[in-house]
Design a protein around this nucleic acid. Structure first.
Lengths: 227, 227
DNA sequence: CGACCATTTGATATGGATCAAGCGATGTGG
DNA sequence: CCACATCGCTTGATCCATATCAAATGGTCG
């Protein structure tokens, strides 16, 4: 089951979070997450579901999140992975157009949509920050579509390079997601992802010390678009 | 050539366009395009290119536009088609992350990015409009990614339904784009698009009175996800 | 009317899906 | 602490949807 939740692991400890220095409150603080609620989620726990009323944005503080859509036939398309520092839940209407789940133990700040939008419409710096986040997300989504027309090997390579860059790790990736998650993000089957990783290892482009750890051994070759 | 421009057909007639009633200027006009420059483009003419400095947003007034990216190997992925009323050119950085071309004779209002952002950061109504447009584009892009993991038949059907809805035509579509454009949008080859349309015609779901005109004869069946 | 370009149709090839085992890590109960 | 069950991943064999290569048709414009 894709939606499985482990109730035993789940712990939500909402608490008011104020990012600004309490002793020197700053009315023009330009951080989006200045006032929000810190939420904790267990592995595979749902943060929000497609169709639910969308009242909040989120910023990942620790852990990671997947956002996804389910097709009629049950297939799942992962729209994005959200690492610490990333925002998610930015959506047009008053209902979520996708679902979000924690990949592992995750802390995220939940911000009231209305409050953030209200503040952004009066604070130029905040507005610019929100604009940047949203258009960056748009750009990411467009690049994702570009990914989906490439060959399996290119998709996997691009994914590894993207993860390495986002984790700012110099060639050593710690994957927070399963092979199935990767497959659903790349529009491939789990078997193809696995085979491609094995092939990349045999070619010497990467090493696989454990399933969740990958070493990129040849950035240049990984970047070169291949079949 | 994908980039071919027919210089003979090209006519740019920039002119100041003021959407508000000149006799009653309204400082809080909440239309994004209130002040802009009306531009005209010929068939296949480039409006902006990937990598160019991005100074402007655009709103399509008549005609239609394709935005796209080119992969290393020369393949082209069309990111979106923009019909009258649609905006394009909303991007994060100071450089365009994609290219835009007119599909046919097209008029569009070009608005200075900086001016629009400046005004939106002070005018709540304008801010909300800009927010809506941007998040809608984000949502569209995510749905597009969803499209790309479906079967050829589903992609074509979804495309036809989407066009019908956007043209607000009750089952009669006038396509502003070629088969190659459709193929590059759907991540298929031109042959597969053609074959799929032929199949849909044989099944009685659509009729093809001419290559650029398509009649949807069975919405229910088109909506039903098929292999 | 003829040339050209877009589209359709046909034949074949192939990358990735599907179906099916096997393997290895992780966790649980004895 | 170890045997075993479980789950996630890898590997193998085969199939199929769509790409590719090739040719025919049709529509448009000089």
């Amino acid at each position: 089951m894709l939606h499985q939740i482990n109730p035993g692991q789940t712990t939500i400890r909402p608490q008011v979070f104020n990012g600004s220095n309490a002793s020197a409150p700053n009315i023009s603080d330009d951080r989006l997450e200045t006032v929000g609620t810190l939420m904790s989620y267990g592995r595979d726990e749902e943060i929000f579901g497609e169709g639910e009323v969308s009242a909040r944005f989120y910023k990942v503080m620790s852990g990671s999140v997947r956002t996804y859509k389910i097709l009629d036939d049950g297939r799942r398309q992962i729209v994005g992975f959200h690492l610490p520092g990333d925002f998610f839940g930015l959506e047009a209407g008053d209902r979520h157009t996708l679902s979000a789940e924690a990949l592992c133990e995750t802390n995220a700040i939940a911000m009231k949509r209305s409050a953030v939008l209200e503040r952004a419409s009066r604070n130029k710096s905040l507005f610019e920050k929100l604009w940047k986040i949203t258009t960056l997300e748009l750009s990411r989504s467009q690049s994702h579509a570009l990914l989906l027309i490439k060959s399996a090997q290119e998709r996997v390579q691009d994914f590894l390079l993207d993860m390495a860059e986002r984790e700012a790790s110099h060639g050593e990736i710690e994957l927070p997601m399963s092979r199935q998650d990767i497959a659903d993000y790349l529009g491939l089957t789990i078997e193809t992802v696995s085979r491609t990783l094995t092939l990349l290892e045999k070619t010497g482009l990467i090493a696989l010390p454990s399933t969740r750890r990958i070493l990129l051994k040849n950035f240049a070759a990984l970047r070169a678009s291949q079949g």
